[in-house]
Design a protein around this nucleic acid. Sequence first.
DNA 1: GTTTAGCACTCATGGAGTTGGAGTGCTAAC
DNA 2: GTTAGCACTCCAACTCCATGAGTGCTAAAC
Lengths: 351, 351
Amino acid sequence: MNERKLKILAAVVEEYVRTGEPVGSKVIANLPGIGVSAATVRNDMAMLEQLGFLEQPHTSAGRVPTISGYRLYIEKIMTPPALPDSERERLDNMLAEQGPMTGELLIQNATTALAELTQCAAVVSDFSPKFSVISKVEVIPAGKRVYVVLLITSGGAIKNKACRLEFDLTNEQLDRFSDYLAEHLEGVSVAELSDERMAELAAAMGAYMMTMAPLVQGICELSRDLQQHALTFSGEKNLFSCEDLDKMEVVRFIEHKEELVRLLDDSFSGIRVMFGEDGGSFVIGNSSMIVSKFRKDGKNVGSLGVIGPMRLDYAKVIPYLEYFSQKITDLISEEGEELPADGQSEENRKG
Amino acid sequence: MNERKLKILAAVVEEYVRTGEPVGSKVIANLPGIGVSAATVRNDMAMLEQLGFLEQPHTSAGRVPTISGYRLYIEKIMTPPALPDSERERLDNMLAEQGPMTGELLIQNATTALAELTQCAAVVSDFSPKFSVISKVEVIPAGKRVYVVLLITSGGAIKNKACRLEFDLTNEQLDRFSDYLAEHLEGVSVAELSDERMAELAAAMGAYMMTMAPLVQGICELSRDLQQHALTFSGEKNLFSCEDLDKMEVVRFIEHKEELVRLLDDSFSGIRVMFGEDGGSFVIGNSSMIVSKFRKDGKNVGSLGVIGPMRLDYAKVIPYLEYFSQKITDLISEEGEELPADGQSEENRKG
DNA sequence: GTTTAGCACTCATGGAGTTGGAGTGCTAAC
DNA sequence: GTTAGCACTCCAACTCCATGAGTGCTAAAC
């Protein structure tokens, strides 16, 4: 496995990514920087095929990289160019679009920008809510026997839910219940807010329990909601414009986005590339997904991913991904606990 | 335009819907209930073609209905069968899935059920929020200089948003501001909550204005939010499985769903069918959309629509649509008297 | 030992020519 | 007004063939 073979593999990958056609020995030989004849290239390509890095669609066609080929190229050969300052500035502008770079909007903008830049689908899985604590619980009367419970977290998430009780509460009851909740929930980590914990709480309340049950129930639901990983998508349409991908598989994928969570939440650092194979859980044929993490207080609190054809300009995409994950890491760290985000955006995101 | 010609048109539409192939005179002649020879059918078909109800893809092919043909069939010829009781029961179950039939969940279930039943895309545009009034406004401290504004409507919608102020408010300021908001906003119709009105309000506040601006701003945003028609979609994937529709056009459509609002909010009663033509604003070639309204207090407050290929079993789909729109009309009318946040000002609440 | 030119071989691609059949319009008879 | 018969049209599918890109292999050159 000499220098030249790697160069040839790189050339095949890059040509194939560029043209989408199987690449022949002649094309490679004529490329600047190769400097050997087509016959020599042919020999090397035959070798690369034996090693499993290239394959031929059929006998008299050129070569196409295999998954191993892509992997070798990505991990050992390619050298993504550093982003020029002008580009960084452009990216920053995309992130800051229509507002300060905070919370949900930041995630939203990052996803959109990534999809736009790469012409692929982009996804961000933000599981930072799990790492925040309840900073406020309120119970607000909202009509006859109807009360709204409101949960605010240190991460800035705001959730509410209307609950109906059997009776109206007196002011005193309401105050007492509010105080009780504040005392026992504020400061508690969202991750710890299990149904069991709530049940204990309810039990401890004793006599009131029966009357307040729907409220406790409501809080349970809200906390379950908070613990769910928020998946933000953008640019799914790009997958449809993509020749290489089977439309039906794309549809199946879009219908089962949740399954991505498993892949996105895997803990690792740096960049990871996975390929849509039949065996794996990520199953659009000929597709690949590139994932990077962002962190807060040194912990992984989210992933951003780009999903596109396997025939992707990795050297272009990866720097974007790295830049954005770093940027998000920086921004959410400095933003700290101060500014809660828009509590409604959860719902807005459904589409 | 005699009886028999209409029968033949109907037969062509139904055969074409069933098979997807252009329909020849022989097939029609052999259908039960026709009772004339292929030659006669041919003559009639030639006439129907002249009148613009049928067309031929090419000389030696059978006939296909034109848009006028479909329209005539739908409006004058076809007679949708009444839903049997067993079917009604089944539909009711689909609506009631996982919970009582109220609010968003009802809309959600109706959309899903419609998509499921028809194997098409379904959409519901609910603009009832416009017809509700603000029943409660709250401002809740949520951290240093951060306040959450909470809006509850008589329709049961709850929205919140965090705002950051320049200074912390004293309790007295907060109370005073809350009272002021309650006095001026509670009972106001959501539709009237324009930015201008808010500006007036702000102006009237005078001195406090400067400090409170972000909160007023927040309320503006929330009310804009409330006024937005909520579009609920389901079954978009079905459009991709549909032979007749161009995938790229479907993608374009899905990316620009909002544009549907214009079509869905048109006021009319009964059922309306529109066809995806180049000229119109609904532009998936060979598609059609069937729309029906639901009402509250006699006013149209929402639409439900089914979007599918033009080659659609209208006689099957339309009864579903009619049943659901009637059902929703019934449910939201009775619910009005009971709904969670309807509170407070409560007129004739039973029990 | 490595590289290269040359050559025979393979095979996908696309155009030309052919056929079959479905469906039509027209006409003449009923 | 309806029908049978017939000539005609034209799509769809098929075969046949030429083309050319690309290969592997071999033997000579470096």
